[in-house]
Simulated scan of single mutants.
Amino acid sequence: MSRSLRHGALAATAIVFSIASLAACGAGNDAATLQIRPDSAATTSGDISIQNANLITQPEPKAEGPAVVSATLFNNGKEQQTLEAITVPGTSTTVKLHAAEGAGPVVVPAGGRVIIGGKGNASAVIENGHEAAQDGNVQRVVFKLSSTGEIPLSLLVVPATSFFKDFGPSALPTAPSESPATPTGSATPGAPGETDTEADAPSND
């Protein structure tokens, strides 16, 4: 075998081992390929990055109740920003923002992040979920921040099931309770308010 052929064979062998090594690394328990997650909207504007954004509705298609916006906001700047509003253009719905603790605004700290949706996190609740969107559709929303301004983003509308179960609306509808039936009709002997004398009194006939 000539020297050039030997060099080519060695190079090819090295490439094969490199590919095999990469494949072995990707097959580990923490491999990114094993962490299958549904598509979520993401964008960056100025110092603010929005990731894992979705509009999550009730788990049942016909269930009445609120929907929520779920997202993670990162602030890459040196000053904190306030999430002033989230709007749903083309609808009359209102999105109510709540901080994770207390009644203050939703703040994205400098060099930090804020999670919207899920237990113990900030929340963005859409009062009329059915008017806002339908499952499977894409809904345009606008995040408004104190310094960056408006950031439009198209969110996938998904029900609060499977991966989104823990991030969906917390106020689920409940069936109205039925009050126990009240007996009607004339009083019976021994009923409250009737004395033993009245119950045992002989007839005058």
Results as ranks from 00 to 15, higher is better:
2 S>C: 10
4 S>F: 06
7 H>D: 12
10 L>R: 13
11 A>I: 06
11 A>V: 12
13 T>M: 14
14 A>S: 14
17 F>G: 03
22 L>N: 12
23 A>N: 12
26 G>S: 12
27 A>E: 12
27 A>G: 08
28 G>H: 08
29 N>V: 11
32 A>P: 02
39 D>A: 13
41 A>L: 06
42 A>H: 07
43 T>L: 09
44 T>M: 13
45 S>Y: 02
46 G>E: 09
46 G>L: 11
49 S>R: 15
50 I>F: 05
54 N>H: 14
56 I>G: 10
57 T>K: 13
58 Q>A: 03
59 P>W: 13
62 K>T: 15
63 A>E: 10
69 V>Y: 08
75 N>A: 05
78 K>G: 01
82 T>G: 01
87 T>Y: 00
89 P>S: 04
95 V>S: 09
95 V>R: 09
98 H>K: 14
113 R>G: 00
115 I>C: 01
119 K>F: 00
120 G>P: 07
127 E>K: 07
128 N>V: 05
129 G>R: 04
130 H>E: 05
130 H>N: 11
132 A>I: 10
140 R>Q: 14
142 V>G: 07
144 K>A: 08
148 T>E: 13
150 E>T: 07
151 I>G: 09
151 I>Y: 08
153 L>C: 05
155 L>H: 03
157 V>R: 06
162 S>N: 15
166 D>R: 12
166 D>Q: 13
169 P>A: 08
169 P>D: 08
174 T>P: 02
179 S>C: 04
180 P>M: 02
184 T>M: 09
185 G>E: 11
187 A>H: 05
195 T>Q: 08
195 T>G: 15
199 A>S: 15
201 A>K: 15
202 P>I: 11
204 N>D: 13
204 N>Y: 09
205 D>C: 05
